[in-house]
């Protein structure tokens, strides 16, 4: 189960970087960025996972056994933070893409002057 997840993560990272670097449409580049970031989030969650673990919610009943049973809650907090950051980057990127469309009348980087990076 865990091995498949890691394979998925590697595939997603490769896909994201491919989409980011070789596609020439601005929106596709943004999608590639999103895929890359989501793959890293999945990696973080998988690092904290433990087979058969309980959700990291502390209740009076499981206070004693919590540390030995639950999955690691820290990566989940990190991923939440990172999702918020990712959201703001995507929003900014999309609004810049909208502006670029309005200025250059195209979303293709090959037609936008000198924009080939």
């Amino acid at each position: 189960m865990i091995a498949e997840t890691y394979i998925t993560i590697v595939a997603l990272i490769v896909l994201g970087i491919y989409c980011l670097v070789w596609k020439s449409n601005l929106v596709k580049k943004i999608i590639g960025l999103g895929i890359f970031a989501k793959a890293v989030h999945l990696l973080l969650i998988t690092i904290g996972f433990r087979p058969g673990g309980i959700p990291p919610i502390v209740t009076p009943q499981n206070l004693q056994t919590f540390a030995s049973l639950s999955v690691d809650p820290l990566p989940q907090a990190l991923v939440l933070t990172s999702i918020v950051i990712d959201l703001s980057i995507t929003a900014l990127a999309l609004s810049i893409a909208i502006l670029a469309y309005r200025h250059f009348r195209t979303l293709n980087t090959k037609n936008i002057r000198r924009m080939r990076g």
Partner: peptide, 11 residues
Amino acid sequence: AIEGAFKYLVA
């Protein structure tokens, strides 16, 4: 500005 910003944003 828009061209530079998008390039910088992606990188």
